[in-house]
Design a protein around this nucleic acid. Structure first.
Lengths: 143, 143
DNA sequence: GTATCTGCAAAACATTTGCAATTCT
DNA sequence: AGAATTGCAAATGTTTTGCAGATAC
């Protein structure tokens, strides 16, 4: 599902982003995790490896990625801004029990409603909330 | 498109909400406007009529509406929490030019993807961004 | 050596909380 | 009077900004 990227430095350069150590690490983390992390998740995941890291740099880096269109913001809940580097068309599901956010494959053809014809659509955001498989099974076992 | 409600006081009572003046006015505003307003929009719209109104009350009121399930939060963008009292299944479109948020009719049947089968879905949120009809026409006229 | 990038501290916002005053019945 | 509601002021949390020092080419 995730984009395959040979070399992060080259990928950043291709998108006019100078590949600093911090930027490579943030991008690498976004690429390797499936958690659609928040700024705080990213910061906490990297601060051990980069002890001087600041949240400002994480913010700067993410805003740059978004400007250069190699990442998108996903906001499933208020007060919880998450980031995604998977740029293919897909939806997101958030489990209300465990809080995990998963990707959902969606055929873009399906989202061609008549009611959208009057608009020029630039972005689709499809969010679903509920209970994930794992949490459903855990509940079954309990009962 | 909007729900038809005879009497807001009775409607609030039916949902176990004591119909104070502030609550009636906030609900009335949500019902009559199509703008999917933010807290600030609501506050600014009502403060002339209710000069003692505070944002805290608007927040309290909206949180109560959400708890009692007569309103929902819509978050199309980070840092922009909006509210909607239309509880039927529908999507939202936000114009990137004029900032207006419109309702989008969607057949719920269409949103039955195989990829969602492994989840128990409790909420759907469908957001679209782009340029609205009016802004597209304004651009045409300019050129 | 000059541009850029990083990260601290402070500022800017949005939302929540504690609590005292007000209102409603 | 008693219970609920309102709204001020302060607290909290998130994101942005200004700027000085560090880093890279």
């Amino acid at each position: 599902m995730k984009v395959h990227i040979e070399n992060i430095g080259d990928y950043l350069k291709k998108h006019e982003i100078k590949p600093s150590y911090q930027r490579i690490k943030v991008f690498e983390y976004l690429l390797n995790t499936k958690e659609h992390p928040t700024v705080d998740d990213i910061y906490r995941a990297l601060v051990d490896e980069i002890p001087t890291l600041s949240k400002t740099t994480v913010y700067n880096t993410l805003n740059l990625f978004i400007e250069k269109q190699i990442a998108v913001v996903i906001v499933i809940e208020e007060n919880e801004t998450r980031y995604d580097v998977e740029m293919n068309f897909h939806g997101h599901f958030k489990c209300e029990k465990c809080g995990k956010v998963s990707d959902v494959d969606i055929d873009p053809e399906v989202i061609n409603f008549d009611s959208l014809n009057e608009f020029q659509i630039n972005e689709h955001h499809l969010y679903f909330k509920g209970i994930c498989k794992d949490c459903l099974e855990k509940e079954k076992i309990k009962n």
